[in-house]
Design a protein around this nucleic acid. Structure first.
Lengths: 208, 208
DNA sequence: TCTATACGACACTCGTCAGTTCCGAAACCA
DNA sequence: TGGTTTCGGAACTGACGAGTGTCGTATAGA
């Protein structure tokens, strides 16, 4: 799904004529779309805004994506998902959780939350938007936290009785709540509070 | 703020002439606005939809509220807030938390979440929408949970060391996350899971 | 009864935005 | 070099929605 923009080329039998499409512009356009989506929301974002921010013509966008909806879905689907394999391994769960909070990751997380916010009302009506957002923004983060907790269980640090699936949602849901519902910034310090006051105690570990 | 619709009458010095405005229609119109807001979101909701659903003319709406934005803000502000004083008191925190999950309250909570969802992208740009939504939907629920936890502390059931403010957000944020981000229904059973697997353990109480 | 207003219903204006088309310039290929 | 396509830019079309005005009817006070 992430190579939608290339698929027609692969299938196309005719070795096209004339000037070639400059696919190096795709990422800039998609990034511009995500920027505007994050700051305005889907409905208040206009295709003209995206074209202007990407320093492209609107016709260029419509030559590549058939509609605003497809452009946004592609932009979300092509987002680099959060660090697939570079999970920390410090030997303790708290160490892993804290090491997982890097300054750029927090800023990046806040941006992804804003992008989600811009799509929330659409997601309940359109499964395509919902799937794109969930598989790229929501799921990777939850998967990372599940892995860290499972490692702690394997290590014997945490009892296997805990509900990994639910507890892995504590940090993502509470940061989303603070940012979207309360309108407050989520910083490193707040996430550490969540780790020490909520997640670790809920796992039966003592707060430091 | 909730009596915005009446204020001009109070101040108006002239004892108006002609047919009187039928204020008994206000609640129906505001309820229709909330319904459409919940199912479509602010941007996709049209004033015509609200008028039609309320079986009213569009002019009637504009005679009462100067704009779509003010209509929605008033609709949200006039929502009945969740049970102000009828908090349960069963003697144990778990008993209180479980007793607090009544079937209508869960359904009502889901609707309020949908209403929030319809305004999330606006809230970051317009403090008026944000304040209305937070003071009526978000804050009362958090306040109720803070009260239940503080009672448990006073009772000696829970240590006073806990971060009441943060822990009172566990249930609201995780139900909002499940509903809005994951697109899954929130039922009584799930809330009990949150109580037993997250909140009570985080407060240092044993899961039953 | 007379006048003024509210009512629902509908037509209307006006701005905005998705999507299309055209332009001159540039780039690719035969 | 000439035909074909892309580019950014801008004008254009068509639909839709916020807000207004009008019409016939209903209801209030004078």
């Amino acid at each position: 799904m992430s190579d939608t923009t290339l698929s027609e080329e692969d299938v196309d039998p005719t070795p096209r004529l004339g000037r070639k499409r400059d696919h190096s512009r795709d990422p800039e356009i998609l990034a511009a779309a995500l920027d505007i989506l994050a700051e305005k929301g889907y409905e208040r974002m206009t295709v003209d805004m995206v074209a202007t921010r990407a320093r492209a013509g609107k016709a260029t966008l419509y030559r590549r994506w058939p509609s605003k909806a497809e452009l946004v879905i592609d932009a979300v689907a092509c987002m680099k998902s959060t660090h697939p394999a570079d999970l920390p391994d410090t030997g303790s769960l708290r160490g892993d959780l804290v090491a997982n909070i890097k300054a750029p990751a927090v800023k990046d997380g806040e941006r992804k939350l804003r992008i989600m916010a811009g799509m929330v009302s659409l997601m309940s009506e359109s499964p395509e938007f919902a799937d794109a957002a969930r598989s790229v923004i929501v799921e990777p983060r939850a998967a990372a936290l599940r892995t860290l907790i499972r490692r702690a269980i394997d290590r014997g640090e945490v009892t296997p009785d805990v509900d990994v699936h639910v507890l892995a949602q504590v940090i993502p849901s509470m940061t989303a709540y603070k940012s979207l519902m309360l309108g407050q910034a989520v910083d490193r310090e707040y996430i550490i509070t969540l780790v020490d006051e909520v997640l670790l105690p809920a796992l039966g570990l003592p707060a430091p």
